[in-house]
Amino acid sequence: MGDALGEGFIRRLFNRWTLFAAMAALVAVVLENNYYLSLLNFIGIHAILVVGLNLLMGYGGQISLGHAAFFGLGAYTSGILTASYGVNPWLALIAGLIVCGIAAFLIGVPALKLHGYYLAMATLGFGIIVYIVLNEALPWTGGPSGLSGIPSLSLGGLKLDTPWRLYFLIWLTVWAILLISANLVDSRTGRALRALHDSEAAARSLGVDTARLKLQVFIWSALYASLAGSLYAHTLNFVAPASFGFMFSIKLVTMVVLGGMASIWGSLLGAAVLTVLPELLAVFHDYETIVFGAILMVVMIFLPRGLVRGILDLRELRKYKREGVR
């Protein structure tokens, strides 16, 4: 019954997670090419961002158009504290989380009290403000030319300064983030979150404090972005405002939509595809944006629920037809 099914689910999940870890480890052993490894590292960093945004967008039904700003806040908090003040990178990472958590709280409290798309508007404004501050606060951020000299992370005396070493840190983090997020979605709070997306009225009628829950998940997704930002700063050892502008926020939203709203594994795919694509399309130079847009349009028209869900839907449909349900 219900319990036997629950156990089966945990077993299946366990296999899926170990398989993913094994695959990631295998990739590291096989790949020696630094270019591919650093590409994978950026996919990992983007994946953390996209999973967080997907929890907010795909599961919670709230849109953030300023996620690049939280990414930037995390990156710059880590960068400034370590490069200019010599703070321990791990402590700086925690400081970034605190800064982003507070920022998300301050934006979320007023914006989420209102219904509709106020959060999208508020985060859009926030993203622009952060972008301007990063450009203008020269003494701290280094302005448009960026902030260099950010030290690498180190783990027990081992400096994580090669793509290969960083790969392990980043993908271990990705693994943990995916696991935590899948847990969340399947927990009491996660169910309430998915419920409010489908019917806020019904969720409230069952005792779900929807305003509080939306705020919580908004802060939670900002924390993911901050974590990704800190990893980014220590991976590149350099940050510049251009990486954290409005276009990157849009790109993150696109990754969520492409991979599939409300799909944890889709987020990983969305991040991978849209990180690799510009690299492949770099040869086209002038046509990059056009090809990019065309691919997006095709996916949105034919697989509106994203790549992963779209393929699952097709399978589901076949199953229904076979079983004669509906």
Partner: peptide, 27 residues
């Protein structure tokens, strides 16, 4: 109803107020 959730999950949301686990505990 919560259309994108299963029948059982719909009713599990009904049990929301009888549980305590928050976001962090669940994650």
């Amino acid at each position: 109803l919560f259309d994108h959730m299963t029948v059982l999950e719909n009713v599990m949301v009904g049990c929301h107020r009888r549980g305590r686990a928050g976001l962090l505990a669940g994650a």
